[in-house]
Amino acid sequence: MRRLTGWSRVWRALVTVAVLGLVINGTARGDDQQWPFGPMSQFAFEVSNSGGTVRSVYVEALTVQGTMVRVPLDAQGIGLPRAEIEEQLGRFERDPSLLQAIAVAHARRHSDQPRYRVVYLRNEVTRLEHGKAVSHQVETPARWVVRDPANPQEIAR
């Protein structure tokens, strides 16, 4: 039987208190910045049964060849999943020039495909009534004409 003694018992007690304290604090008053001790807020938001809305963000681009394409939001696409675009939605709305980064990432990862000339951030809004979808509407919260679309570069900040 191997028991804990002395210092090995003390540091484990301290670590236990620290880990539990941090993770409880994270949910009680923290935010996602404190990961891995952030709030366990997956699906914690409330969507009203009537008048509630479901928002689905996606990105479209007009290529230099004049075709409109859906930007692939995943690891194999531009390297950013949809959720990451969604979480930074406010930043894109305040500063549409951030959409230049999407054109840059696409050019780096898919050099064989036509470059993006204009990038559109879209938001599909579904309205709920009595828990059921009753209407769909597409908004465009941000739009960016890509600088140097043939060879897009990051904008210095």
Partner: peptide, 21 residues
């Protein structure tokens, strides 16, 4: 803590809402 976060963020009415929908 996921249960607690739902109360903190949405109140006790979370389970009667349409989050899963």
């Amino acid at each position: 803590l996921a249960a607690w976060a739902k109360v903190r963020q949405s109140g006790w009415g979370w389970a009667s809402g349409s989050t899963l929908t």
